[in-house]
Amino acid sequence: MIKKEKIESFIEKIPPAPKTLNETFKLLKLGELIKAAKVAESDMALKSYLKNIVNKPIYGFKNDVSDISQIFGILGVQLSQQSVYNYMISLLSPNRWTLFKLNAQLFYELQANLSKKWQNILEHLNIDDKDRCAAITLLPASIIVTEALFNEKVDEVNLLRTTKAIDYNTILTRLCGVDIFDICGQIAKKWEMNENIYKIVQAASGVKPSGEQEIDMLGKWMHLLLFYELSNPKFIEAGLNDFVDFQIEYVADIYDEFSSLMEIE
């Protein structure tokens, strides 16, 4: 159904990170927000994406924010970096979604919601680290990977899934020996993302903890945040709720803290 060759072909097609983005990252890492904004201004697609994201309701700005330096200034270094990473991930998203009932706007909304809530979580955990902050951006890549690998096999997979409650990640693992999060890891490596980003996302799969206490703790929070977000009616309707298995036992010890932070009653 899905052969290793298809996975290799997908990974090969991932373009290297554009020069503008690399330059923007370098400057953001140095905390040079104004210089980074000037570089980012030259990439019209990035500019449009950032405007779109920052004006989502989750950021809560009353007035329309349109200037890149203003956007970077409002977001600060960490969220600016996250937003640029989110843009990179969105470059991989398909023009037309087939497996999931998504569109660009809904996907951006998922990215924005995850990013903002992840920042709240890191603040709650007193973690101030750019790479840990940026880790959340790789998580939606798992949705893009699933769409890319399974979109031609929708009928077969649906038929299989009416017989057995088996998620896409498990199907891929059983067929090819690699999972969706391994492929996200390869994307991270190709784009020279920090190794910790890759490790946290692996731990966030809920099935592959790293054995490193802090990484796994962040993986748990990310796993729970993912399913909190995927329980949003829009994303349930898009078919995202069951694309990977929710590992309820994995997150049991942080649930009370999470529900208190998210004000779940």
Binding site: F227, Y228, S231, P233, I236, D245, F246, I264
Partner: peptide
């Protein structure tokens, strides 16, 4: 279903 189940999302 997976995750959170409340009056807003149960019907979806």
């Amino acid at each position: 279903p997976q995750g959170f189940l409340d009056g807003n999302n149960a019907s979806t």
